[in-house]
Simulated scan of single mutants.
Amino acid sequence: MRKIQAIAILMFLTFTNVMASGIITVHNIKSTDMDTLELTQEWDKTFPQSDKVEHSKITFHNRYGITLAADLYKPKNRQGRLAAIAVSGPYGAVKEQVSGRYAQTLAERGFLTLAFDPSFYGESGGTPRYLTSPEISTEDFSAAVDYLITRNDVDPQHIGILGICGWGGFALNAAANDPRIKATVTSTMYDMSRVNANGYFDAMSADDRYKLREQLNAQRTEDYRNDSYELNGGVVDPVPEDVPLFVRQYHDYYKTARGYHRRSPNSNKGISNISSLAFINMPLLSYIGEIRSAVLMIHGAEAHSRYFSEDAYKRLTGDNKELLIIPGANHVDLYDNLDVIPFDKIDGFFKKALKEK
């Protein structure tokens, strides 16, 4: 079992960024490949546009001065100040994929929602491209709150966030640090620090971690020498015969018409290999036990990642925290399967927690 788990670590490089020669072709990108934002105006989502919602493209900035691009969804014919929800994720996805589907669906139910591209990829700014950071990726949620709280059509006391997959962990981290966030939902959550430092199912030893640091820091040297950043190649394509089932499930979403998007790192060339280094050294969820606002965590019973939510939930305190396990669902089912995603539950949770009338 330990050997199988180790193979899983190496095979699915989107999350651990371990180099695996012969499985994935890596790519380089210059550190200055994006200077200005160019927002696509046509509808280019992986889901159909709703006629119940007004859609617009907006930008906002985080405290590092990075400009982020977002899709704003507002229910038609709603007046006054609305409860608002900022949405992002999964790790390696863009707002035209999962987060946009969640945001539009919740806007149909009466919320003003914002699905944003994180710093460094999608239509958002930030260089080098295709980087992730425990600090900046968390900061992006609070930056979205900055933007929402200053809108005339948003009730500043009724703002929540929703994070999917890796952005579920960032959402919990943001909620621990930002009391302006009154409610948090995570869906199919990943603890990116844990998976990078320990591997899947905590299979890595201290020696494994040291070897990983050696590889990644050697890559840093090459990246600096070449003035470029090696990318991990995204989701494995084609899929080798002997990979774990969850690798196939990611491929079925990101690499097929079901969820492919031309700007998605997971669908294309992937994320910077050396992004893993910061996560190894910085535990994301250190203070989640201090979250005082409401939290709903959702995960599939059959998801390989289920243990991330279950273990994080045990650390939450208070009587306004809930873990919902969806029978029969795997990790990727909660990306786009409308028969599985519990939107009624999410809707009711936010309306209660944000006191939306």
Rank of each mutant, 00 (worst) to 15 (best):
Lys3Tyr: 12
Leu10Glu: 15
Asn17Trp: 00
His27Val: 08
Asn28Arg: 04
Asp35Ala: 14
Glu42Val: 11
Trp43His: 08
Gln49Met: 14
His55Ser: 11
Lys57Pro: 02
Lys57Gln: 10
Ile58His: 08
Phe60Gln: 02
Asn62Gln: 10
Asp71Gln: 08
Arg78Cys: 05
Gln79Thr: 12
Gly80Gln: 08
Gly80Trp: 14
Val87Ser: 09
Ser88Arg: 06
Pro90Ala: 05
Tyr91Thr: 14
Glu96Thr: 02
Ser99Met: 06
Arg101Ala: 15
Thr105Met: 09
Leu112Pro: 04
Thr113Glu: 11
Phe116Ser: 06
Pro118Val: 00
Phe120Tyr: 13
Glu123Phe: 12
Arg129Lys: 05
Ser142Ala: 06
Val145His: 04
Leu148Gln: 10
Ile149Cys: 07
Pro156Leu: 07
Leu162Phe: 09
Leu162Thr: 05
Trp167Tyr: 15
Trp167Arg: 07
Gly168His: 07
Phe170Met: 11
Ala174Glu: 11
Ala174Ile: 01
Asn177Met: 10
Asp178Phe: 13
Pro179Phe: 12
Pro179Glu: 08
Thr184Ser: 12
Val185Met: 10
Val195Ala: 08
Asn196Lys: 15
Ser205Val: 02
Arg209Trp: 04
Tyr210Phe: 14
Leu212Ile: 05
Arg220Asp: 15
Arg220Thr: 13
Thr221Pro: 04
Asn226Asp: 06
Asp237His: 10
Val239Phe: 00
Phe246Tyr: 09
His251Leu: 05
Tyr253Met: 05
Tyr253Arg: 08
Thr256Leu: 05
Arg258Phe: 01
Arg262His: 15
Arg262Pro: 00
Ser264Cys: 12
Pro265His: 09
Ser267Met: 04
Lys269Ile: 10
Gly270Asn: 05
Ile271Thr: 13
Phe279Pro: 03
Asn281Cys: 03
Met282Gln: 14
Glu290Trp: 10
Ile291Tyr: 06
Glu302Asn: 13
His304Lys: 11
Tyr307Cys: 04
Phe308Arg: 01
Phe308Ala: 06
Asp311Ala: 13
Asp311Ile: 03
Lys314Ile: 02
Gly318Cys: 03
Gly318Trp: 07
Lys321Asn: 06
Val332Phe: 01
Tyr335Glu: 07
Asp336Val: 01
Ile341Thr: 02
Asp344Ile: 01
Phe350Cys: 04
Lys352Val: 04
Glu356Pro: 00
Lys357Met: 07
